[in-house]
């Protein structure tokens, strides 16, 4: 790509990231139901992360194997969160 275009693309991504952040903050100000906020916030954060990973970290243009590593770490991170919460304490029987 041309220098101009790369710089344009990076700036565009930055604008998106900033907009997402502002949307996140505004979501809090409005009285959405908690589940909606949870999903919205995590969803937007993930979207931001994906943009950064694909374009700023160039995963899109690099050897695909690097993405495998990243996905593996992502898998374990999700696994950790699920098991840590699911097994966070003694299961109340009575």
């Amino acid at each position: 790509m041309e220098a101009e275009n790369i710089i344009k693309m990076y700036t565009l991504i930055w604008v998106l990231l900033v907009v997402f952040t502002i949307v996140e903050v505004m979501m809090i100000a409005m009285a959405f139901p908690p589940v909606f906020i949870l999903l919205g916030v995590i969803g937007l954060a993930s979207l931001k992360a994906v943009f950064i990973a694909l374009y700023y970290q160039h995963l899109k243009y690099d050897d695909i194997a690097i993405s495998w590593f990243y996905l593996m770490a992502l898998f374990f991170a999700i696994f950790i969160v699920i098991v840590f919460t699911g097994g966070s304490g003694v299961w109340p029987i009575q």
Binding site: D62, D63, I64, A65, I66, F69, Y70, M72, A73, L74, F76, A77, I80, V81, F84
Partner: peptide, 28 residues
Amino acid sequence: PFENTSKLKLGVWILVITEAMLFAGLIG
């Protein structure tokens, strides 16, 4: 499958993965 990745770059990526796991533990 790392034809286009230099040694150093791959090394940095592996480091990033260990950092990711550190934060995975903390977020867990």
